[in-house]
Design a protein around this nucleic acid. Sequence first.
DNA 1: TAAAACTCTAAAGTTGGTGGAGAGTTTTTC
DNA 2: GAAAAACTCTCCACCAACTTTAGAGTTTTA
Lengths: 285, 285
Amino acid sequence: MLPEQKQNLLPIGKMAAANGVSIATLRLYDQMDLLKPFYTDPDSGYRYYDIRQTSRLDTIRYMRDLDMSLSDIRDILQKEDLTLIEEKLIAKDAQIHRQMQELKAMHDAVERTIQSIERYRKSPTSGTISLEFINRRMILYTPCSCNFYESGIVAYEKIIQDLRTRLMEMELPQFLSYSMGTSVRKEDFERGELVPDKVFIFGDSHLKDYSPNVCLLESGMYACIYLDRFDDEIPCAARLLDYCRENRYTISGDYICEELTEFNVFDNRQRSMFLRLQVPITFQK
Amino acid sequence: MLPEQKQNLLPIGKMAAANGVSIATLRLYDQMDLLKPFYTDPDSGYRYYDIRQTSRLDTIRYMRDLDMSLSDIRDILQKEDLTLIEEKLIAKDAQIHRQMQELKAMHDAVERTIQSIERYRKSPTSGTISLEFINRRMILYTPCSCNFYESGIVAYEKIIQDLRTRLMEMELPQFLSYSMGTSVRKEDFERGELVPDKVFIFGDSHLKDYSPNVCLLESGMYACIYLDRFDDEIPCAARLLDYCRENRYTISGDYICEELTEFNVFDNRQRSMFLRLQVPITFQK
DNA sequence: TAAAACTCTAAAGTTGGTGGAGAGTTTTTC
DNA sequence: GAAAAACTCTCCACCAACTTTAGAGTTTTA
């Protein structure tokens, strides 16, 4: 090829710079038959592009930005079929929609986690008793067949495992960003016996669609006590019961142990967590 | 290790099933020091996990779902620093925000492209003259120093190249999904001389923030003629001018040649495009 | 004509996995 | 207690869409 014929042709570096892609990318596209240089010098192997090839490169980059695979793009470009392109674009649009929903869910999960870290940081010292208004909450539970207060942590973990599979079946992931809890029936708690009734996770509005094993905890005033070790639960629950009696509060529902994990960073859950034991109460008139 | 000590330990397959990950993934996490099995048999090399390690795995999966890299996750888990985790999460949240905006932009671009394909499909036959109301449009332009009607397509391509780099500098990608155009000043057009004034792309509302070289085309009635080849522009423009004169329309602004590319699938832009030549007009009272 | 700038090919690295081969180990079944 | 089934081991190759590097050759500029 004569030099004057090359005047409208761009060597690979110029072509790359003009289009904001790397030289290696252009070589890859050549190799993959996506964009062949207008002319390749048979002696030196140098690639020369026609300026007008930028429009095809545009198309490729456009589709790549839309996250289509190179082989898909090659197929589309080879077929030169407008209907096919339109179909792919419509499918892409649907996919973008889904991705946006996923991102929204991710955002919610991150927000929840950040809030829970904040909460952990500002949690009261162990032993603090408080009276709080707590909003309505949705829970997803597993009924408790064994008494893990007696049979130990391993039994508890097994039940959690059950909850976990339940969650996985629902395709409701991000187990982490929900906090967990256990409940004891009002009657048992009032007798001073911690017999576990349910193990559950607190969910958000997503949860309400999945009906089985989901229930509502009513909003209301709760007597609460904070602690930072599982081992202290039984004595603290007793203190809470005493507190309610001293103040003549009427216990109006089940006892709940809410497990606020800081962030499950460590291999054992024992460290870096705190618990908020709570009973709903009403006041005697 | 004695068999009874293994009773609370899960071999890799059970652990994988319980957490909805693959065996290979667990092995990878082991290798990458993300999650070491609680016990590894020194003879057989078999991995045994403690049930409680699921919480760490949760954390890893959570961060993976948030698209963090394994090495980032390892660093976070090693540091065990709550502040660091929170920082990362906040950064992640910001990134999710950006991604959502990107997706929005992608969606818009896809919509635009689909519309332009529809439009191409339903375009009138070449030579059709029409009177249309056209809405206000924003354009990003490059002033035209040379007359490509005379000096040919290569000069035109060079100007487009200039526009392209301008767009790239603005980090406004997806050149493809905007249609292009050229304009001729009213006075020149009325004299029947096509002297190019600007080369531009039509943008949407994004564009208005970037002030230099952006301008507005007012809404109004336009006399238009459709054609499907660049070569026909000059005679068609002449026909359009005649048409305006015959009907005693007053030309109220610059002549515009709008290049509606179907989709830049092919190496040369010539094929599969159509043009809409247009002049804004007012009616004599 | 030399130096600088550019380009070539080929191979390896990147990330977060998946899949397979061939060997060894545990558990189940008879 | 033996055989069969199920499980697990390591090591290696593979995926996409590049990026990076090495070592050699080519073109442009001074």
